[in-house]
Design a protein around this nucleic acid. Structure first.
Lengths: 144, 144
DNA sequence: TCCTTTTTGTTAGTATACTAACATTATAAA
DNA sequence: TTTATAATGTTAGTATACTAACAAAAAGGA
């Protein structure tokens, strides 16, 4: 057992990371895109290359609850950043699609996120980062 | 540069960790103590052994903003979990003290947090955890 | 001294996170 | 088929996080 409060430390870094992202200005209709909005746009853009993306996929991908998903997506839809359409195959599902606006923003957003990732990882070797990511993955499993 | 989105992964684990803590019931006046409230109680209890604790200390310790500190502490004070008293030496500072209630809860809270830490760290060696914590510390510095 | 800057804390408004309770559709079991 | 269960999404209420603008006290410089 470590004496280091790892959970608290994780929370700290996670807070700082989101804050950093938000400090890179990226405006749509006068509103600075939030960290979550940016990450969701990237996630949908990439995943929808190969498959349909539904709301439930965000739960697993970001480890958040359904209710949180609903809230964030309602706001994004209102802002014209995505569209939610009921699936014809399964009436429970809502398929997510980016709008022209958010598709056009994708490249910039991805670059922004990568820049912040680069800051996060300054001075760490590729090997260290892979090791780190493996441990994170194990922790994620432990907590589920 | 990793292809792994470390920031997102960090956020995921951090979410799951808080959720886990909150799922361990710990009631005071009919309200389940939140993860942040628990962590703050432990932090104040430990630090106040050797020094006065002020609101500003929470900013650094948890990597949150002043405004967040104010909000959380106002609620905790209202619930009778702590007291904020202006410093006689420096009129800007507010000193934090636990109440009898939260002092009495401390031992249980600490045990709860340690249990969740233990889940987080299942199947990982002491060496791995120290290494992991070192990387986290570097990341925290990178982002500040 | 007086003026400026820094430090600390608050408020208002908003986004993201949770739980709990609910509705609806799909699936499984009887 | 009918009934029960599971999966998906919504709503309401609350906690925690942010930025921006503010106020007040302390520290520093002229």
């Amino acid at each position: 057992m470590t004496s280091v409060p790892l959970g608290k430390q994780l929370k700290s870094v996670s807070n700082l990371f989101s804050r950093r992202i938000h400090q890179i200005p990226l405006y749509h209709e006068g509103e600075n895109l939030t960290p979550m909005q940016r990450m969701i746009i990237v996630m949908i853009h990439e995943r929808s290359q190969t498959q349909d993306v539904f709301q439930r996929d965000l739960e697993k991908s970001f480890s958040i609850r359904r209710s949180t998903v609903t809230g964030v997506l309602q706001l994004m839809e209102k802002r014209g950043l995505l569209v939610r359409e009921p699936s014809a195959q399964d009436g429970r599902l809502k398929r997510l699609r980016l709008t022209e606006t958010s598709n056009a923003l994708f490249a910039i957003i991805q670059k922004n996120l990568q820049e912040t990732e680069a800051v996060l990882c300054q001075g760490l070797t590729q090997q260290e980062l892979l090791f780190f990511s493996d441990i994170l993955a194990k922790m994620e499993q432990n907590l589920r």
